[in-house]
Nucleic acid binder design. Sequence first.
RNA 1: GGAGCCAUCGCCAAGUUGGUAAGGCCGUAGAUUGCAAAUCUGCUAUUCACCAGUUCGAGUCUGGUUGGCUCCUCCA
Length: 466
Amino acid sequence: MHIYDSVQKTKLPFKSIVPHKASIYICGPTVYDDSHLGHARSSLSFDLLARTLKALNYEVIVAKNFTDIDDKIIKKVHETGQSLKELTSHYINVYRQEMRALGVKDADIEPKATESLEAMESMIQGLIDKDIAYVVNSGDVYFDTAKDENYGSISHQVVADEENQSRVEHNTEKRNPKDFALWKACPANEDICFETSFSKGRPGWHLECSAMIEKHFEGTNEYSIDIHGGGADLLFPHHENEAAQSRCATGHELSKYWMHNGFVNINGEKMSKSLGNSFFIKDALKVYDGEVLRNYLISIHYRNDFNFNEEDLLNSKKRLDKLYRLKKRVTPTKSSKPNIPFQKAIMTAMSDDLNISVALATIDEMISNANDKLDENPKDKGLKKETLANIEFLAELLGFGGKEPFSYFQIGIDAVTKNKIESLIIARNEAKKAKDYEKSDAVRDEISAMGISIMDTADGTLWEKL
RNA sequence: GGAGCCAUCGCCAAGUUGGUAAGGCCGUAGAUUGCAAAUCUGCUAUUCACCAGUUCGAGUCUGGUUGGCUCCUCCA
């Protein structure tokens, strides 16, 4: 397995800190709003990573956090009148459902910030004791970046004169403009806050992840985890700060490898909350099946920017349709073992920093070969069994192709419509038998008008929803 | 202002140690079919934004130019 490390900016062979085990931590969502396609892509990217490592016989532990306390959440609590718990658990549940709809496997550990306050407090206290962190009059606790000589080694952002360059207004109590909050004291009129030895307040965003990683992973004396993942926008300052805190708190590096996924753009523009052009997963799922959406979102390498548009989505759906048509041809049958060269080719591609394009090309080739052979010998049982095994292998590794093929082509069709289609097909076949092609074509037009495509095969007339 | 990424056929897109351009969509010719659809086969980039350099040889390395994007502010 080779993965691209964003810190060293090069592809590196993956050597886990404990042999045959891989620990992965992914920065999850802040739960105050619905998730958008960017969250989906990030999740999908690391889902693919975890699945690939599992297929390579690693024992994989994935942790993905929920940031369930921060200013935006507090603001929304006050706006809606809901309790903190009501609000955050709602969005956590929605997130989980949406991720499942996209075929993302649940993380093994899903820590919440509010359930990790002790770990945070002790990490902060430890940094204060070492004089790496300091408490200011307001009660805020800041990290003194000047105390960490490796600060900047993650993102390579060397901000020499940040005070002049930055557009941020700095708290004048900070020792250094680069210093960032580990803990934010709450205003007197704020009741959503937590008591600690240094002040009543809430955790800083960067600190949460560091504390949760230390809480849930054992690590070694070199690293806490193998891979830390997240969106490309988190590299700086979020991951830089995480790394600094952890380095100073534990005496070793936080993560051996850092991976960052690219953005999802809509109309060539970055999708973000502040731009207000978010495409929410819930809205996408109203129009497209979760598996189709997954297949599309993973079809472009995770580090590239992703330009979402319907034409490309339909293109990728066509490839998935072909896979399911092949599955239909080999159903029903019992699977045997996947074809070894095929399996190897897919694993080689995915082991190369998740080279999905090569994997997809390999799948297209497998489909083409299988169809070709089935054209020659439709009753080739051995081929059918192997083909089904190939598809099942893909379903496990890439998370698509696992559905029963006939139902795949009937997604969104209710029983009444289904009956109507089937009776029309019978009517058409009767007309065909009588060689009344004018009538049979008219019936076909009627079926097409319903958005259904039909195809005459040796096994009878099959239909698909377009 | 600082840091960095990207530019390959009409569209999407692969191309780790430089060795002579994967795959999909679309289009097109054919096999098959009552006609379609599906499936299969053939064809479809002397060329990788542009210029210069290194080299026997560069899409791949170096320098520059142009164009697009991101981070430095909550953000996946």
